[in-house]
Design a protein around this nucleic acid. Structure first.
Lengths: 172, 172
DNA sequence: CTTGACGTGTTATGGTATTACATACATAGA
DNA sequence: TCTATGTATGTAATACCATAACACGTCAAG
């Protein structure tokens, strides 16, 4: 482990940790527990496949293609046809437990489920790391820009391609 | 024509026109002329295929899939294999003459080529209209959010799904 | 006139996502 | 309990999106 976790370890939650090395096991556990509660609240069901997909996303701690997820599922005895993965992923996205990263045709676990947030994704073009940045301000600006045209925003996709801190150093 | 165009008709350029009915022919003409100049400046070449693809995007005035564009090209005697369309589209995107709308796996002509802009796309989930909104403020907010994590943004994708003005009315 | 850069055409393939239908499972109501 | 209903899963087939690799042609610089 990169650091010792108390149950409220901030490193897993803080934005700044997104690009830092740390122990994912704790974050995963914490997120899973919250997921159970959130889903129950919304009246939906976190079935075995769905829960497993979330676990997989949390374990890998990276953006995964639907077919990558599917391979893992199939290896564990679940169905091995694309809809199995896509349906579970879609469910998780709807519940706010995962996000879709369109630039990568991939999915990633949400690290802050339940907290109302309009995430932005920061994708490093060198190391391919994806970080979820808090982007309430971005969403506000987008709502404002859309409002000027009379458009009402329901869902938004905000993704940035660029260089993460460590790749900036190496490039310099 | 929905309205009579002077060569400096603002309706085609103004954001508010994005969702308004108007004559596209003039906008297209204007954009094409500017495209010629811009490409020349950058040392690139707006070859027949490339120019035709831009014309097609302008004519249709909607987000088009690469294969839609390809069909049009093929019907006019150009190559009918995917790379023909993808290469031309990629060129136009690089030159800032077109944009890629990832949510739709589609491309659309840029309505304000040459003006430095970080566009946001507003996609109506009912009528599928796509509008390009000025989003300098959004980009600034994104840069700021990324900066807090030490991430340097190079390119960004900002897309919103929601309801355009007229579909809001109909829904109400 | 040769070389090299660029653009186009074509074949082939790989990756992503959805439709449609069949089956199983859970829960609520008779 | 039994059945009806909605929801979830499994599967087959297909559609859609995108790229790699190679061949050919053109044009301008040396």
């Amino acid at each position: 482990m990169a650091h010792d976790h108390a149950s409220d370890c901030p490193a897993c939650q803080e934005p700044a940790a997104a690009f830092a090395r740390h122990d994912h096991a704790h974050c995963a556990q914490d997120v899973l527990e919250r997921a159970d509660g959130l889903v129950a609240l919304s009246g939906a069901r976190l079935t075995p496949v769905r829960r497993r997909v979330l676990e997989i996303l949390l374990e890998e701690h990276r953006a995964m293609g639907a077919y990558d997820v599917l391979k893992r599922l199939a290896a564990e005895g679940y169905g091995n046809q694309p809809p199995v993965a896509y349906r579970a992923l879609e469910f998780l996205v709807e519940q706010g437990l995962a996000h879709r990263v369109r630039r990568l045709n991939a999915f990633t676990a949400c690290m802050h489920p339940g907290e109302a947030h309009a995430p932005a994704f920061l994708i490093c073009r060198l190391c391919n790391t994806v970080a979820e940045a808090p982007a309430a301000a971005v969403r506000e600006a987008l709502d404002a820009a859309a409002g000027l045209l009379g458009f009402r925003v329901e869902r938004s996709t905000v993704e940035a391609l660029g260089l993460c801190p460590s790749c900036q150093e190496q490039a310099a």
